[in-house]
C-alpha cells in the first residue's frame, strides 16, 4: 500500500480537467457512497466475527480424571438423559443427550480428552428408556476390555436389541457398547437433566485407547424423537449424541 498516495496524487492531476464536468455532483455522491460503504464495512466485520464465532463454537473439552488407584488409567463418568431440560439448553429442552461429570457437576459436553495407550474406565448412568436398534448387529459388545460390559453389576456381552436405549461407539477404535434402557414400568422416571435420584441403570466398561488422534464417537440408536429414522436433531448435533474422543 506504500505506493498509493503518490499514485493517487498523480491520477488526480491527470484527470483533474475531466473531473470538472461531473465534479460537484459526484463529490457529494462519493461522500454518500463512502458513508454507506464504511457503515457496510463495519457491519460486515461484525457479521464476519459473529459467523466465525458461530462456526468455531464447540462444547468444552473435558479431560478425563485419573481413575482410583487399584485400577489405574483414567475415569470417565457419563450419563444419558431423555431430555436435557431448560436448565442446560433453553432452546432444545426436549432433546436427548449425554452429559459428563467433572468436579462433581454434570456438564453438557461430549468432547473428552484421554491419554494415549492407556485404559479408560467408563461409568455410565443410563436414565433414558429403550428405543431399539436399527441394526441389531450393534447389540453385541465389541472392543472393550474382555469384550464385555457390566449392567447393574451383571457382566454381559450382548443385550436384546429392542432394549437398547443408546450406544457408546468409537468406530475407529473398534469400541461398540450397547446401553440397555430403563424399563418403562420403572417408577421415578427422570424428566430433565441432571437426573440424580431417578430410576437408572449403572453400566461400566473399560477400553484401551490407541494412537494419538481425534476420534469421533456416536450413538447408533434412533433416539431423536420426531425425526426421520430417529437420526436428526440431537443425533446430528455435536454435544448431544455425538462427540469427540481426543487421544493425547
Amino acid at each position: 500500500m506504500g505506493g498509493f498516495p503518490g499514485c493517487l496524487w498523480r491520477h488526480r492531476l491527470a484527470s483533474s480537467g475531466e473531473q470538472v464536468e461531473w465534479g460537484a455532483q459526484l463529490s457529494t455522491l462519493a461522500k454518500k457512497v463512502l458513508g454507506v460503504g464504511s457503515a457496510v464495512v463495519v457491519l460486515g466485520v461484525l457479521i464476519g466475527l459473529y459467523v466465525a464465532s458461530w462456526a468455531t463454537s464447540q462444547p468444552n473439552t473435558i479431560v478425563a480424571s485419573a481413575a482410583p488407584p487399584p485400577s489405574g488409567g483414567t475415569q470417565l463418568t457419563l450419563e444419558t438423559v431423555a431430555a436435557i431440560g431448560p436448565k442446560y439448553e433453553p432452546s432444545h429442552p426436549d432433546w436427548v443427550s449425554y452429559l459428563v461429570r467433572k468436579d462433581n457437576k454434570w456438564i453438557h459436553s461430549t468432547i473428552y480428552s484421554v491419554p494415549a495407550n492407556s485404559v479408560v474406565h467408563v461409568t455410565l448412568y443410563q436414565y433414558d428408556g429403550d428405543s431399539g436398534l436399527r441394526n441389531p448387529f450393534l447389540s453385541q459388545v465389541q472392543g472393550t476390555v474382555g469384550e464385555t460390559e457390566t449392567v447393574d453389576g451383571k457382566t454381559i456381552n450382548s443385550i436384546p436389541p429392542e432394549e437398547a436405549s443408546h450406544t457408546f461407539v468409537i468406530p475407529q477404535l473398534g469400541v461398540f457398547v450397547p446401553l440397555p434402557g430403563v424399563p418403562e414400568e420403572a417408577k421415578n422416571q427422570c424428566e430433565f437433566a441432571p437426573c440424580e435420584g431417578a430410576a437408572h441403570r449403572t453400566i461400566t466398561f473399560s477400553f484401551r485407547t490407541g494412537k494419538k488422534g481425534r476420534y469421533r464417537w456416536q450413538c447408533f440408536v434412533p433416539c431423536a424423537a420426531g425425526y426421520i429414522d430417529g437420526f436428526g436433531g440431537p443425533m446430528q448435533t455435536l454435544g448431544y449424541m455425538d462427540g469427540f474422543i481426543n487421544v493425547v
Binding site: S131, G132, L133, R134, N135, P222, C223, A224, A225, G226, Y227, I228, D229, G230, F231
Partner: peptide, 9 residues
Amino acid sequence: SPEPTRRAE
C-alpha cells in the same frame, strides 16, 4: 426397513 420406518416417537 427397520423401525422406525418414518419419524421416531
